[in-house]
Structures are given as structure tokens and as C-alpha cells.
Nucleic acid binder design. Structure first.
Lengths: 338, 338
DNA sequence: ATCGTCTGTCGAACCGATTCGTTGAATCGA
DNA sequence: TCGATTCAACGAATCGGTTCGACAGACGAT
């Protein structure tokens, strides 16, 4: 079932079949039809490896996702889905690589085995060895999130600083004077996880501007950690009446702790966050949040990457997204003691 | 940076480099070291396409997931993650194809372009065109879920009939006499979606055996549909005090409807389901459920597939999993009017 | 009648690996 | 000292496509 077989059965040379298929040279209508018939009959499709070898491109994109897959947040999942969809629209396949460091075998295979034409990397750190690796290998890439050298690379990111600021403004407008930030884990922050750092900056700035008091807490990405964190907040800072957060995975636990403490949301306690829209709507009560446009980001990333593959030496492009806050049912005016 | 370059720089032939790398023939220790040095220096790795072309295998698996538009359930997500992990452990890459029918371009590329050595297909229907297509193409595959001809193919599946039966037994043991089944959508059922049909069978059988009354409801896979469905149940069958379900995505809505009706879970109403463990634990109240071992299923599927690729003509193997129910906080004895 | 152009097709080279058959040198036993 | 054996390396063929240069035949212009 190779091109030679098709050529033999339709009585032409292999090159003619190739040209009939690609249209890069003229082939008479009669031969073209004859070839097409044979192809349809045998259900022939060119071997991807052979084509990739000759053309020097694989028509495949790599998507590097965080390792230990089970822990993908809803937002990340939405993003992955949208990358797949966008790639499928332009007939590109997607190779997934669950890897964190730059010594990961799967990552190495993809990058230096030239299995893909370009790579999208999620969950970027401020100093990210994968970025360095990709640059060294000369592999086109787009990151979700940006490094400490943002001007050097192509990326799409969410403006966490602005979004957390908006959360704080919103809460302050509602009369909350003591607000906590539930950030992501201390380990992530220490590792230079950008969104965490920028959420911190935005929080600090907004708190200062509105002259409210703000305390930051780091919290691992799961419900039990959220529960423990919220307990700690209530315990150490009983004056706090609202939280802003970028840690959606912790929220079920946060909610549980508030419930146990008898603090109704939003009656006695408000929560504003940054989360995937779908997730925010399924949360109970529905979450007031900046709805991260994960779907849009995915197709944006694919577009940028395709552009980059075509023009590897053009100036890197970036997109910083700052979606507005959707008001739902998890925030309300600060409780005034009767 | 190809094998010829390495050969030239280390003063040997290309074949010697190849043998030094694969170890398929003896290469003197001295030359091997010399070659390795050059390789390390240039950071060389064999071109995947060239290797695939010559060897006739790609060292890549295909994973066919439901079309990207539809949302993956938490269970499906866990499964995808575990496939990725299991494949990475044995140095295989994974190509994702979000496709439903057999005419999907991405599916066709993977199957007849021989981009992968084998395929794992999720969300199998009783009559599934993709299975037919794969059989015709002679591509090794493993399905998650099985078709109406289960003996013909390799598959891994959850024994939904048994699990739903166990839910019903558990609820009946707690004194519930009127139980609803919240199945998945009527469209899916009509399309021959296996888990839906087997849940129905298990439910019918268990209800009969325990002499309780059971009513089945179909419900789309999202919270709003779950809410509407639960409202309908309460409205049309006020005697019902418990539901069993395989529709995890509908549960947040179900819960919301019960809350609005003032029915405390599990005090006044019980819920037992089939769901991913992590999901069941994050649900409030924690869900009594048969914890689908999605992680185990993923690596099982990869193992079966690798076996199948090695021996395409061996008798197909199957695995039907029936995990026990984990008792959590969403079920309690039927409410007895005071 | 001759030359140039255009069409449609073919043959051969090439992409970068693997692998088989071969060969030259070193080693060994008789 | 010679043939047999082993070791280490080489050269060429091959996988299945794409693409470049060549070329035969038809056609039109001069």
C-alpha cells in the first residue's frame, strides 16, 4: 500500500502519483482520475514518516503539560482541549508530553528527535529550563505564561496581577476591610511560578491602593490543603471577611472550612477568584471570578505557534489577557454586626 | 546533526554509529567511547521519522478521546492522564485524536497514515464505526468499554451493571424503597452507549431482586441538566428517597435541586454513584461511590495494547473491573417521619 | 521546414536512519 | 606456517515518500 503500488496499478511513475496528489505540477485530467480511482479503491494514504523525513516537517505539534497528570486543574484541562481543537482545525496532530524538568525523556524525544514542528509549553516558571532547552535546540515554541525574559519568547498569558487587583477592588467596594489572598503553594512560588508571583504583586498593590489590610497565604492545589489553609486564616485573622484566590483547586476545601465555622458564603464571607468559567458556574455558590478564557488561549497559542514555525526569526509576539470579573453569588457586602 | 555527521566526526562509518547506539553488533570499547563523546557534544538524537520509516514502527500510541467540544468528565481525564503516564514509563509517545465518527480527518490520519503503532479508543459505543475502521485497517487497538461483539476485540471496561446493582443493594439495605437511576443522556443511550445500557440492566435486575421500586431517568452530562432532572424526579415521584447514578457531571446540579427543595443529603435523601475517587472525595458531602480505578485502567490498557502490537494475532484479551463501593457521606438510612 | 514553448510524464537523487553481507586484521590451534 | 575462527568495521541496499532536471510530443509562430 505504498506510492509505488499505486503507480504500478495506474500505469504511471511514482512521481506522477505524487504530483497528482499534491498538485505541484500539472497532471492530465485523465491520469489524475485513473490514479484517484486506484487510491480510493485501495484506501491509500501517504506514509507519514516517509513524508516527514523528506519534507523535514512532521505536521505535528507538541504540547507539554504538567507531569503527574491527575492533578490538572479544570482551567488547564480546558486549555488542553482547546489546543487540540485548534490544531485539528488546521489538520495538525498533537503529541502530548507530560513533563516538568528538561531532563525528562519524553520531552527530550520530542525536542531533539524532531518529532514535532513546534511546541506549546504550559505552566511556565520565571526561570524555566525547558525554555532554555527549546531555544538551544532551535525548536519553535509558544509558552503559556512567561519567563523572567518576556521579550525573548512567544507567549500567551493571563494578567494575574490585574485580575487579582480587580478582585480586591471588588471586595473593597463591597466594604471588606480585611482580605486574604490564597495563593498557590509555597513550593511553586519558590520555584518561580509566574502566576503566583504576579498574583502577589497585584494583591499587594491593590491592598495598598484601597487602604485595606491584606494577608497572603500559600496553599497546595487540593481541597484538604484549602481546608487547612482556611482554618488557619480564620484562626489567626478572625477580622478577615473575604478572600481572593487564583487557587481554584483549593476552593472546595475552603468552602468546607467556612461551612464548618458556620460562615455562610456570601452572607458572612466573600470569595472572589480567577477560574475557568465552567468551573466557576458549577461551584456552589456560583463563584464571582475573572473567567479565564482558556478556550481562546488555546487557539491563540496554536495560531502564534504556526506563525512562529513559518517565520522562526520574526520578532516574538505576546498576548496578555485580562478578562473582566463576572459577578456571581460568592461575594456580597461585608457583614455588619447587627 | 544526523548520523552521518556523527560518523564523520568520530572517524567511523554510519553503520558503526548505529550499532554503537543500538548494541546489536559488537563495537570496540574505544570506538564506542569516541562516538559517545561526539554524540554528547553535539547532543545528537536519531531522527524519529527516519527511524520510523526504516523500522516500520513509530514508538507512538494513539489515544482517541471524545471530540474536544464536549467536556471530558473527571473520570475520563484521570484515564487520559494514566495512559500518558503508563506510555511514558515505557518510552512511548502519545498522539491525541479528539474524534467521534470514523470520517474524522484526525482519526483517519492516525489510522491509515500509520502515524502510530496502536490505538486506544475511549467512549466506545455498542456499534462503533471506529472499531470497524481499525479492524479493516489492521491497526492494533484496545478499547475502553466494549462493543456488541465483545469477544472480537481487546478491551478494558468497568462493570457498570454490577456497580449499579451494588449501589441499589446498598441503598435498599439502608431502607430505601423507592430509588431513581440517573443515567446518561437519552441521545447517548440511543446511540448505543454501553455503560448506559449496562447501568440500566444492572438497575432493573437489582430493583427486581430487592423488591423495591425503581425509575430510570436520562440526563445530559452537565449540572443544569442534573438540576432539571432532579426537579423532575422530586415532582413526579415524591416517594423517591435515593438515587443511584453513573452521571457524575450531573451531580452538582442534582445536589443544587435537593438543596433548594430543602432535602438534606444524606439526612433526607441519599446518593450513591459510580465516579472517579478524587471526584467523589471532593464532592460535598463526600460521595458514596464505586471508585472507578481510572488510573489502573489506563496502564492496563497500555499494557494490553503493547501486547497486542507484539502479537497482533493472539486471542483478544479483556478485563472487566468491578471495584467495591466506598462508603462516604452521601448515603444514610431512609428518613423515617417522626 | 525550423525553432521555441508548453504539457505531461519519467527517472534518479535525496531525506536519515537500520541492517545484511562482506572484508581485513588479529587470534588461535594444529 | 597455514587455515579456521573471531572481532570490528565498512559499504550498499532499503524504507516510502518528494522534487529536480530531462525529455518526448503537440502546437503555434516565423
Amino acid at each position: 500500500m505504498n506510492i509505488g503500488e499505486i503507480a504500478r496499478r495506474s500505469g504511471v511513475s511514482r512521481s506522477t502519483v505524487s504530483y497528482a496528489l499534491s498538485g505541484k505540477r500539472t497532471v492530465s485530467e485523465a491520469t489524475r482520475r485513473r490514479i484517484q480511482e486506484v487510491i480510493d479503491e485501495l484506501d491509500y494514504r501517504p506514509n507519514a514518516a516517509a513524508r516527514a523525513l523528506k519534507e523535514g516537517r512532521t505536521r505535528t505539534l507538541g504540547l507539554v503539560i504538567p507531569p503527574a497528570g491527575g492533578r490538572l486543574t479544570y482551567m488547564q484541562l480546558e486549555f488542553v482541549a482547546s489546543v487540540l481543537e485548534a490544531a485539528a482545525r488546521v489538520d495538525l496532530d498533537v503529541l502530548l508530553s507530560p513533563s516538568g524538568g528538561d531532563h525528562d525523556r519524553s520531552f527530550e524525544r520530542i525536542v531533539s528527535g524532531r518529532r514535532v514542528d513546534g511546541v506549546i509549553v504550559m505552566e511556565i516558571r520565571l526561570e524555566d529550563p525547558r525554555v532554555t532547552r527549546l531555544q538551544k535546540a532551535g525548536m519553535p515554541f509558544v509558552t503559556i505564561g512567561h519567563t523572567a525574559q518576556p521579550h525573548e519568547t512567544c507567549w500567551v498569558d493571563v494578567d494575574y496581577a490585574t485580575l487579582i487587583s480587580r478582585c480586591v477592588y471588588h471586595l473593597a467596594d463591597l466594604g471588606h476591610h480585611h482580605i486574604a489572598l490564597i495563593n498557590r503553594s509555597a513550593e511553586l512560588l519558590a520555584a518561580g511560578y509566574g502566576p503566583g508571583h504576579r498574583a502577589r504583586e497585584g494583591f499587594t498593590a491593590a491592598v495598598e491602593q484601597r487602604a485595606v489590610t491584606g494577608v497572603e497565604f500559600c496553599c497546595a492545589d487540593d481541597a484538604p490543603a484549602g481546608e487547612a489553609c482556611m482554618e488557619q486564616i480564620l484562626d489567626a485573622h478572625p477580622e478577615i471577611t473575604a478572600v481572593a484566590t487564583i487557587n481554584e483547586a483549593a476552593l472546595p476545601g475552603v468552602q468546607r472550612a467556612l461551612e464548618r465555622a458556620g460562615l455562610d458564603v456570601p452572607g458572612r464571607f466573600s470569595i472572589a477568584g480567577v477560574a475557568a468559567k465552567h468551573w466557576a458556574e458549577e461551584f456552589r455558590p456560583q463563584l464571582t471570578a475573572a473567567d479565564v478564557p482558556a478556550l481562546e488561549m488555546g487557539s491563540l497559542a496554536v495560531d502564534l505557534l504556526i506563525e512562529r514555525i513559518a517565520e522562526p526569526n520574526a520578532a516574538p509576539k505576546h498576548r496578555l489577557l485580562a478578562p473582566p470579573i463576572s459577578l456571581r453569588s460568592s461575594t456580597a457586602p461585608a457583614f455588619a454586626a447587627p
